[in-house]
Design a protein around this nucleic acid. Structure first.
Length: 442
RNA sequence: GGAGGUGUCGCCUAGUCCGGUCUAUGGCGCCCGCCUGCUAAGCGGGUUGAGGGCAAACCCCUCUCGCGGGUUCAAAUCCCGCCACCUCCGCCA
């Protein structure tokens, strides 16, 4: 949710922001009208209610005819109050729907336009040149099979398309990656978290995932519960309805959880392998900080993502996502895309978003800060309560990370060199092909 | 899943039976001031959050006693539903 004051004070700013995302500005006018109607309804109700309370006070002390007259008077007033109250409630509902329909304005630095209008900020490392090494790289599906690491056939048999089993070194790879990620997170001062992946509607709504991504969200039949597509959802709602001590910020969490996505709009895309799946595990960084610090924290999150990719010795680039491709909550988003040799292109491995106070307003997460109190003597300053900023960033999304590692570090015989940083957690330097294939029907 | 209990402004707590100066009591903590060689103690005051009126504020008003309805002129208090926690039983990893 954007700051209502911003909408009221500078609607043209919001109109321009809508245009930058390629969206209509009509919601702005709807929201402004709703705001006016709402305030009128509030004034109506409060005037009647105050009158009712005044009269109500006289009743216990009144006697006889006087009392009867008062009761008669307040009876009709009570009906008016009731009507005004429900009118106010209706006006609030309209207002809430209107203001929530407006996404977070993109940062000035974010490129305008849609999915293809990203800007490449940086390219790190060089894609490995298999041609000059004299062999054709195998894709991760084949490598996964050779290594006994990924079982797609049985995934499909048991759970359907876009499911898989990680087996043997595949499973070990996940644990190693999680350990490596958590080690880095701990060293950077993050609190490690295992987060629930089943949440109530409030959490989903609050993080903006029921807006345009609603089709991608799994709902639990017969229950008011959703499966999260990222632990960002649980971690944002973690402090919902709380007022955090400003001195405790930034609060940094590294959360592990399974993630579930219907991938409704991506039929036919990435149908092979484990690039795009309905379920995967992920370690997500989630930060609560001040609005003033959010932009700098965003850079730090990007830094930690790059550090992790560096440890995996991958070639990647960083892109600045265009406004139209941001989620509704995000003001700015950086994606780290790793080079996938058999696809001949960079694919998103991690992503970090600065959601400023957008999610915090929806989830009612605030901080208590010493007042800036211009002109006032320090001793007169009351602490003030303001929304905080939330940011998130992937440390590692397991399947895609495995894809990048296998394909990038493969050797002609189908074995895979283990990046140095991962060796400690994997207990070996090379992943060797397993003797016998263990495919379906084999 | 069943039975019983609890939920009050950071924490603890009075109030709920029997509706009306409850504009929610007191303590702890915290903040400001006074007093005092220092500290502690003592004294006085302040201390939920949201929204509206306004350019803003000392100001005024409304809402907020787990949440949502209802009854009533009037609800922390009565009624209904829900949620969370505790105890016991059942089930289970």
């Amino acid at each position: 949710m954007i700051d209502p004051r911003l909408l009221r004070d500078d609607p043209d700013l919001i109109r321009a922001a809508q245009a930058k995302r390629g969206l209509s500005a009509s919601v702005v006018d709807e929201a402004l009208a709703a705001d006016e109607a709402r305030r009128a309804a509030i004034a109506d109700f409060e005037r009647l209610r105050a009158e009712q309370k005044q009269l109500g006070k006289l009743i216990p002390r009144a006697q006889g005819d006087e009392k009867a007259a008062l009761l008669e008077q307040t009876k009709t007033l009570a009906a008016q109050v009731k009507a005004a109250e429900s009118a106010q409630g209706a006006a609030e509902d309209v207002w809430n729907a209107a203001i929530r329909a407006i996404p977070n304005p993109a940062a000035d630095d974010a490129p305008a336009g849609g999915e293809d209008d990203y800007v490449v900020l940086e390219t790190v490392g060089t894609p490995r040149d298999f041609a000059s090494e004299g062999f054709e790289p195998r894709d991760h599906v084949e490598l996964g099979k050779i290594l006994g690491a990924i079982d797609l056939e049985r995934g499909a048999k048991v759970s359907g398309s876009r499911f898989y089993f990680l087996t043997g070194v595949g499973a070990e790879l996940e644990f190693a990656l999680v350990n490596l990620a958590m080690e880095q997170a701990r060293e950077a001062g993050f609190t490690q978290v295992i987060a629930p992946s089943l949440v109530k509607p409030r959490a989903m709504e609050g993080t903006g995932f029921l807006d345009q991504a609603a089709d991608d969200v799994y709902r639990i039949e017969g229950e008011e519960m959703y499966l999260v597509g990222t632990s960002e959802v649980a971690m944002a709602a973690y402090h919902s309805d709380e007022i955090l001590d400003g001195a405790s910020l930034p609060r940094r969490y590294a959360a592990f959880s399974p993630c579930f996505r219907k991938e409704a709009g991506s039929h036919g895309k990435d149908t092979k392998g484990i690039i795009r799946v309905h379920w995967f595990d992920k370690v997500e960084m989630f930060v609560y900080t001040t609005l003033e610090d959010a932009e700098a924290e965003h850079e730090r999150l990007l830094g930690w993502e790059k550090e992790f990719l560096d440890k995996l010795e991958l070639a990647y680039r960083v892109i600045d996502t265009a406004a139209g491709d941001l989620g509704p909550s995000a003001k700015r988003k950086f994606d780290c895309e790793a080079w996938i040799p058999t696809q001949g292109k960079y694919r998103e491995l991690t992503s970090t978003s600065n959601c400023t106070d957008f999610q915090a307003r929806r989830l009612d997460i605030r901080g208590r800060f010493p007042s800036a109190g211009s002109g006032q003597a320090p001793e007169q300053r009351q602490p003030e309560v303001r929304p905080v900023a939330t940011l998130n960033g992937t440390l590692t999304a397991i399947p895609r990370t495995i894809v990048a590692i296998l394909e990038t570090h493969q050797q002609p015989d189908g074995s895979v060199r283990v990046p140095k940083a991962l060796q400690k957690w994997l207990g070996r330097e090379v992943l060797e092909p397993v003797a016998a294939a263990t495919g379906l029907g084999g």
